[in-house]
Design a protein around this nucleic acid. Structure first.
Lengths: 116, 116
DNA sequence: GAGTATGTACGAAGAACTTCGTAGTGTCAA
DNA sequence: TTGACACTACGAAGTTCTTCGTACATACTC
């Protein structure tokens, strides 16, 4: 499932720091504490995160890997804005500039490995 | 500006068919006629499309080229989900499968031309 | 001219997302 | 044991997106 903007910010903390309490996430994303709490509760309902209720302060973990979620979001954009063509998206990402020489080199390298 | 899902569907018709009346768009996107009308009116306010009111049936045109809008959407996704790295997005798009051999070939070709 | 078709304008309602206040509970220290 | 604090639960309100009904104007036809 595709997370919303706020949900993605929370997931990002969990991916970077590993399982966290609401407070730990809140200290990173800022805003109101109960806002973060509410969002994370909803994310449990949606299945975006799982919750360990052993301790008084519940501990949340992402249900999917970062890579999987990125894949979902890319797939969604390809379908919605690029007529289903991954190549079209890649070309747009590159021609919209923003890919440094290092990045271009990394992409070439990856394509090379992909060939096999 | 980044169009919503419904707005993108409408823009897609305008990009493919050129300037259209509400009815022409509606015949493609389906749903209720006044729904399409309302959305297109809002899109005028947002500046996503421009409207020619010469005729009784107003004629709408996209304000930005398809390529520009795609660029905006890709940029947005790169910022939100890939920490600003276009290369990361490209790699995810490719490793998430979904790129056919033809597409891979096209991307390699594009990178080749990009080198110059 | 009455009725029908086609058009715009616009308000309202529902759904999803976000934010916040408040209530209630458990913990800990003085 | 009382007060301060940290935590969860939850309802409500604001925002944006989407859908739809209704009102009203204009044109065409019989």
């Amino acid at each position: 499932m595709k997370p919303t903007q706020s949900e993605l910010a929370i997931l990002d903390v969990l991916w970077r720091q590993g399982p966290c309490t609401v407070r730990q996430v809140h200290e990173v994303v800022g805003g109101g504490y109960t806002t973060t709490l509410k969002l994370m509760q909803i994310m449990v309902e949606k299945g975006l995160v799982v919750r360990d209720e052993q301790e008084r302060a519940h501990v949340y973990s992402p249900r999917l890997e970062k890579e999987e979620t990125q894949g979902v979001m890319v797939r969604d954009l390809i379908d919605r804005a690029f007529g289903g063509s991954a190549a079209q998206l890649v070309m747009r990402a590159l021609s919209a500039g923003q890919a440094s020489d290092e990045e271009l080199a990394a992409i070439r390298q990856m394509l090379k490995e992909y060939k096999r």
